[in-house]
């Protein structure tokens, strides 16, 4: 995938042996061939232009991990409900006299909730049993529903799974799509001044290690008003941007972008507004429509589907 000289640019010292190996080996055939033209005059070789050393850049895939559990699919919900009914039908009886003192409010409340869960799992009690004392059960159910209404004030309602940012469609907020992995895209000008969506990226200074460069580049582009953590010293992917189709293409060095994974732990991105025009926190599917096709093909397998 990578030519040898791309990797050699990573090391701090360029090994001199690579150049030595590129010469033909001194075999007998080579010696005889070399002997022939020596008698006549050498044809003048056109000076071959060597492609300059490739440029190594780092890109940072800044991730906000899910904050809440994934919404189960319809099938999973039905499966879990079925298993919960089996469990309710077969489990050992709950030792409520061990956990609750008899006659306390807590015990009464637990029994009411337990009845309701029972009805949720197995439906209302059987008609034959209910018809015997129908008046009694009706009056009881009424009182139960009244008391449950009174109690519902005390019980804490769970927080909504959909945040304000989801309702507004605010892609800059870190609170959006709480059940998914989000990735940071920045809207930045490229070398020709044309704005493109891409991951934060940057160059590498002489003698700098790649993962250190990744950290520096992240804060350089996104501001230091956040707490981020680079996951590993190993890159998780590489992207080779296509070279412009010009005649001068031989002179332009190849570029490689090594991607690093990072997590945002606190704070928010604050770009300076000069080179970076905008940013967005997007899921994998939303990301596809914003980036170039070649870029998408390089990054799609290193992003999480969930």
């Amino acid at each position: 995938m990578l030519p040898r000289n791309a990797l050699s640019a990573c090391s701090r010292r360029t090994p001199t042996r690579l150049w030595a190996l590129s010469r033909p080996l001194a075999t007998e055939a080579a010696a005889t061939e070399a002997a022939k033209p020596s008698s006549s005059t050498l044809p003048p070789h056109p000076p071959k232009q060597r492609r300059p050393k490739p440029v190594i850049n780092t890109g940072i895939i800044l991730n906000r991990s899910p904050l809440i559990t994934r919404e189960p699919t319809l099938f999973e919900q039905a499966y879990h409900a079925y298993q919960a009914r089996i469990q309710r039908a077969l489990f050992n009886p709950f030792p409520d006299e061990f956990y609750f003192k008899p006659g306390t409010i807590l015990e009464e409340r637990f029994k009411k909730e337990e009845e309701e869960r029972e009805r949720e799992a197995f439906g209302p009690p059987r008609k034959a049993a209910a018809s015997k004392d129908s008046a009694f059960t009706e009056s009881e159910s009424k009182s139960a529903s009244e008391s449950s209404e009174n109690q519902s004030d005390n019980v804490d309602e769970p927080m909504p799974r959909v945040s304000e940012a989801d309702k507004k469609g605010d892609v800059r907020s870190l609170d959006r799509r709480m059940d998914r992995n989000l990735y940071l895209l920045v809207h930045a000008k490229d070398q020709k001044g044309k704005p493109r969506w891409r991951f934060p990226q940057g160059g590498r200074e002489h003698g700098e290690l790649l993962h250190e460069a990744a950290k520096r580049d992240l804060f350089a582009e996104c501001g230091d008003h956040m707490d981020a953590w680079i996951v590993s010293r190993n890159p998780i992917g590489v992207y080779e941007p296509p070279l412009p189709a010009d005649t001068e293409a031989e002179v332009i060095p190849k570029t490689y972008i090594f991607f690093y994974k990072a997590h945002i732990l606190a704070g928010q991105v604050q770009p300076d507004g000069k080179n970076i025009l905008d940013f967005a926190w997007l899921t994998k599917e939303e990301l596809e429509s914003r980036v170039d096709k070649e870029y998408w093909l390089a990054i799609k397998d290193i992003l999480s589907d969930f």
Partner: peptide
């Protein structure tokens, strides 16, 4: 009540 809301579907 809350139990009915959180119960499985």
């Amino acid at each position: 009540s809350a139990t009915a809301v959180t119960a499985a579907r």
